[in-house]
Amino acid sequence: MTLISVSNASFSYGTRSIFDDISFSVEPGEIFCLLGPNGCGKTTLLDCMLGFHRLRSGRIHIMGKDSVKFRPGRIARSIAYVPQKHERTFPYTVRQIVTMGRAAYLGLFEAPSKADLRMADEVLERIGIQHLGNRPYTLLSGGETQLVMIARALVQKTPVMILDEPTAHLDFRYELIIMEVIKELVKDTGLAIIMATHFPNHGFYFQNSGVSTSIALLNEGRFLAVGSPESVLDEKRLRQVYGVTTRVISLPTENGSTMKHIVPLSTASWEAQD
């Protein structure tokens, strides 16, 4: 069953077009990576799926139903969201933050029940951060905060999770920790992931770990290419989109297969693109 299908979607702020005629669909157990330079419309596209903005034209179907009239609660029971940058305010405990993921299932005047709290604890354990449960989340590191945000999204119990640049600002190790958590979730639960990222190699990483992976290369508001990582990511397209000269290399991995990897060499002059 197709979980999300976006067809001929266009969006503009006033007269400034952000993206145009975008179509794709996401199946259970699939990772869909949105790749593209800063300002190409990745976040806006995610925002439209989450119902923050309305498309200028086109349709977004969530589990077969047109989502244009969905209330926030209905969207939040289908798509969970991990924001790019979470602004911390009050020092809530990690458990309180994660429990907020149940909001979509609670009425206006309702508070989380014992079952909701138990669900939050289960998710913390699953992510491996149960030891942080009672800590004020404002004192966590960037990587730990990101795990908490993923836990909060998991408590929403949705078939789809949207992550906006989940590894931005993270250190070498935490980037990999987040990637591993995402990979495990997709493999174990059949969760579908839509993520915006700045790192082309993320696509190869997921594919190498045996997860069905698609890459969409977004440039100036349009999909330049959509497909498997090795079919989309080549030296020519990366030069065209980013103006970067790269080399795609193959590496042997621990499990005996080979994994592709993109190595940036230098910024190419924009005139020399074609």
Binding site: F52, P72, A103, Q156
Partner: peptide, 15 residues
């Protein structure tokens, strides 16, 4: 939930 900011509160399913 609202103290998470409008964007996140909306994404968490709050009107």
């Amino acid at each position: 939930v609202l103290s998470m900011g409008d964007r996140e509160a909306h994404a968490l399913g709050v009107n």
